[in-house]
Design a protein around this nucleic acid. Sequence first.
DNA 1: TGTTTCCTCTGCGCCGCGCAGAGATCGTTC
DNA 2: GAACGATCTCTGCGCGGCGCAGAGGAAACA
Lengths: 154, 154
Amino acid sequence: MARERLLEELFTVSRRHMAAYALFNQAVADHLGLHPTDLQCLNLLTLESGPVTTGRIAALTGLTTGSATRLVDRLERAGYVVRERDAADRRKVLVVTVPEKAAEFGRVWDRLGAGWPALFGDLDDAQLALIAEYMRRTAEFSAAQVARLRAGEI
Amino acid sequence: MARERLLEELFTVSRRHMAAYALFNQAVADHLGLHPTDLQCLNLLTLESGPVTTGRIAALTGLTTGSATRLVDRLERAGYVVRERDAADRRKVLVVTVPEKAAEFGRVWDRLGAGWPALFGDLDDAQLALIAEYMRRTAEFSAAQVARLRAGEI
DNA sequence: TGTTTCCTCTGCGCCGCGCAGAGATCGTTC
DNA sequence: GAACGATCTCTGCGCGGCGCAGAGGAAACA
């Protein structure tokens, strides 16, 4: 039936979408002289509210804590973040983004994103909200499947 | 205005969506004992119609041809693909997926994807088509931006 | 105060990746 | 048909990100 075909089509186009993103992320990282993982991490940092510990970076990126330490090393050396000791718990290290670098980062995104909203010029607000809701659900679903995979349930 | 906020929201949720996918891909690769790049490559192979040359794999994944050769080495060693000389042009190497392994691969996907269609149970066909169309457009846009980045236009 | 737990950092080895050049094959030109 | 350049793939080499296991320091609890 049509429904089956639509789901199949959605599945296929999703994979293409993801493949395109992987290439895009790689190209942007090359452009900035960063490793793809580093760029991914910066993305995640800007999505978080407030400073983030090294351990949380490990959890967000899926790296081990040792690798997360070295990831922060690279970002710090490149000037994107600075380390700060947590006053409340001195074991923790807070990773804080440098505003100037973040602004520079944002400008690159703005240039890359120019023309992006025009893709949806023919969509109304409800349709945009629908797409956002779809992404929220799939992201949530993915996270749940990752948890199940790691727990060995699949 | 509401439109601005919607676009901003879409932008944010897109990044979360991508981050979730990166973790998902990593987790699935771990589960299969593959490198994330290898899994990405298998995904791309199943999206292509017919056998694919090593050079095309390099283009699809964004790797150099040397790295693509080694990528095919790993996939071949793991039994996912076999190499075949192109009869028409003997310089080329055709990478052909092994049906049994592809089926095994598909079964993992089916288990992971179980419950996925249920996420859209409340959406009608037109809404599904809209989401697919959105992904098609953004994937195309991403590819164009990658081309501009590589050409040094940005 | 002593012990346990938590968070981060550090040596070590593995391996994916880009780079540059070699080898093989095709197309073209004289 | 012989020589030349172009194209496709493969192979050494070194760099560097990653996981692993253990160390060090700080907090929590007895």
